[in-house]
Computed example of a mutant assay.
Amino acid sequence: MFKKLLELNETTLAILAVLFIIGITGIIMFKKRKQVNLTTKMMVYGSLCISLSFVLSNIRLYRLPQGGSVTPASMLPMVIYAVVFGPLPGIIAGVAYGLLQYIQASYVVHWAQIIIDYPLAFGFLGLAGLYRKNLIVALVIGTFGRFIMHFLSGIIFFGHYAGDTPVALYSLIYNGSFLGVDLLICIVVSFMPQIQNLVRELKKKSSLLNTY
């Protein structure tokens, strides 16, 4: 069986990885579902965070040719939302944000790529809520979750841009280039006392602080 897995091409392995990640995430969220009550407060804060991220995403400091751009901390509001309310609400808000990103400025080559690069990738920002004690760590987790989806999409759908470069390495460099800078900007902004105080206050006000 292991020998057969080695014989699979990168695209097939990437597809299997996507399915595996979705399955594992689904299991985790299924276990969490009974612990979450979507309140009006959560939906209001979610709408505000989505709106703020969407506005910030329109300010592109740099845009890559096949999609992806560097923005002034557009991921930060979504990560803060996940940190305050938990991973499941964070994923739901991320999926909604991803659909807005698709409507706003999508780069489409296949219908399945739309799902991976938009609702799934941005939905995985909500994984930041798995670690709610430290905003920096949460940012890394959420960004890594988004990166994995873009990375796999790059292997499956954008391999023809790689040329002589191995497809996986090309996808790693391409997606890591803009997400790494975006993450760095988010981390720098998150060190601001105003942001730290905001997160603490939102956590205090959240009735779901000790849910997860």
Rank of each mutant, 00 (worst) to 15 (best):
K3D: 10
K4P: 00
L6C: 07
E7G: 06
L8H: 00
T11F: 00
L13E: 03
A14Q: 02
I24C: 12
M29V: 13
F30E: 12
Q35S: 14
V36H: 13
T39Q: 02
K41A: 08
M42I: 15
M42G: 02
V44W: 01
Y45W: 15
L48H: 11
L52H: 02
L52E: 05
L52C: 07
S53K: 01
S53P: 04
L56P: 08
N58P: 03
N58G: 15
P65S: 11
G68F: 05
S69K: 04
T71W: 04
P72D: 06
A73D: 03
L76Q: 06
M78L: 15
M78P: 01
V79Q: 09
V79G: 07
I80R: 12
Y81R: 12
V84S: 06
F85D: 10
G86A: 11
P89I: 08
I91N: 13
I92E: 07
A93P: 11
A96M: 15
L99F: 15
Q101D: 14
Q101P: 11
Y102F: 15
Y102D: 04
Y102A: 09
V108Q: 00
V109P: 08
A112T: 15
A112E: 12
Q113N: 14
I116R: 11
L120Y: 11
L120D: 03
A121R: 08
A121L: 05
F122D: 06
F122G: 02
G123A: 11
L125W: 01
L127G: 09
G129L: 13
L130R: 10
Y131E: 05
N134D: 13
I136E: 13
V137R: 14
V140E: 04
I141M: 04
F144V: 14
G145I: 02
R146W: 02
F147T: 01
H150C: 02
H150T: 04
L152Y: 14
L152T: 14
I156T: 06
I156W: 09
F157G: 11
F158H: 11
G163K: 10
P166Q: 08
L169E: 08
I173C: 06
N175E: 07
S177T: 06
L184R: 08
L184Q: 03
I185H: 12
I187R: 10
I187H: 12
V189R: 10
P193S: 12
R200W: 06
E201I: 00
L202K: 11
K203M: 07
K205D: 11
S206R: 01
S206K: 05
L209I: 00
